[in-house]
Write a protein that binds this DNA or RNA. Structure first.
Lengths: 208, 208
DNA sequence: ACATGAATCAATCATATGATTGATTTATAT
DNA sequence: ATATAAATCAATCATATGATTGATTCATGT
């Protein structure tokens, strides 16, 4: 008879840890962090609990692993980064598009960031990772806004940091458990753009 | 010598439930929902676990109680509600100020909303409460925006619902575990206002 | 006074859960 | 081939945790 899991064993530690992280992320997306059990993770990976502990010593380390891999996976999806030589609006759109696609294709990532905020109070190391990431993400937008302002495409009254916080806050609300999926994502992005662009570039003269 | 708990007993069910809800909210704020234990709640209230179960049958009911009381407590802090006869900017500011004060004075409320999203996937009743509330909160802003647009104080290009989602998303990011406290709250609000107000020295001579 | 119900608690149960121990199997280098 | 290290598992432990049972104490109306 054929097995459901034919001959799948003895994976190298690094790969196994990645499999474990992936399983944990999926479970967090599906059931929430509060329901995350080391046993469930092991089961999902298809290994014994002791094997899980061989690769990841304890639950704290597991959570840290999830935080780190989520951050790295998300950062890998982002576009090049602010560049004063390129048109700011295009950079803003690329940034937003990358985030949108991550929500669509890798919903576990945003879900983990959201859920891990619950652990953050108890696990300073996780808080550190989340805070650093959030700040990085916000800074990317702030720099694009500053560039766009000096390029004259964004209002001169745009304050980069507050505006970046506004944007990232608005975007973050679209994570899993956001307002019924991504239906309102682009309308909100459009509203953000209208709120940033200098008045002349709309209505008076027709769009490009 | 005097006791730390002199003769504190036999509270009426309704009051006891409120005390339980308050304790649970405080614990969620401090340790996060994932660390919420019925025992901890009972201990905080100063009652036996069986007494807790007498007032609140099980943990699901406890979570539901927390969700309901958090929502009610928050709604009670909000200003009157959209009114087409009053100046929109003042209404917007009152709305934002009420939220700000709730973050400052009742941080458990926003914390509970944030933390209970983890339960939402497992508890449809909680999801229902959270979704309904979020929608209500957003609608308040949408209506104010629509009023302000017709009053001519907000840009004619403001789309009430997307803009409201942008605003509520941005504000929601200031919950506990937001960007280092409330320091950036008002700068972000100012940015939001600038993004909504009709540009001063600008006329496009367009017919609406 | 005293009967009745409401509120409370001590003790306990059944299971869940994170973690460990020690043996077993597979890969790899010599 | 065989010794060594890496990876895996079955069994188990210790405690945590949600929940129940049955007795006890307080409040209240008559």
């Amino acid at each position: 008879m054929s097995d459901t899991k034919p001959t799948q064993q003895y994976i190298r530690k690094d790969d196994r840890r990645e499999m474990i992280a992936e399983a944990a992320r999926a479970l967090i997306l599906e059931k929430g962090y509060a329901a995350l059990r080391t046993r469930s993770v092991a089961e999902r990976v298809g290994i014994n609990i002791s094997t899980l502990h061989f690769h990841v010593p304890n639950k704290t380390a597991l959570v840290r692993l999830v935080a780190e891999t989520s951050r790295d996976a998300f950062l890998a999806l982002l576009p090049p980064g602010p560049d004063a030589e390129r048109p700011a609006l295009a950079q803003l759109r690329a940034e937003v598009r990358a985030y949108h696609d991550s929500l669509r294709d890798r919903p576990e990532l945003a879900a983990c960031f959201g859920q891990l905020t619950q652990v953050a109070t108890a696990e300073p190391e996780v808080a550190e990772i989340l805070d650093a990431f959030t700040q990085d993400w916000c800074r990317r937008y702030a720099e694009i806004l500053a560039i766009g302002r000096s390029q004259g495409v964004f209002r001169a009254t745009v304050q980069p940091l507050p505006a970046a916080l506004m944007i990232t806050g608005a975007l973050a609300s679209f994570g899993p458990r956001g307002p019924k999926g991504l239906a309102m994502f682009w309308p909100v992005v459009d509203e953000i753009e209208r709120s940033l662009l200098v008045p002349e570039s709309r209505e008076c003269s027709d769009a490009d």
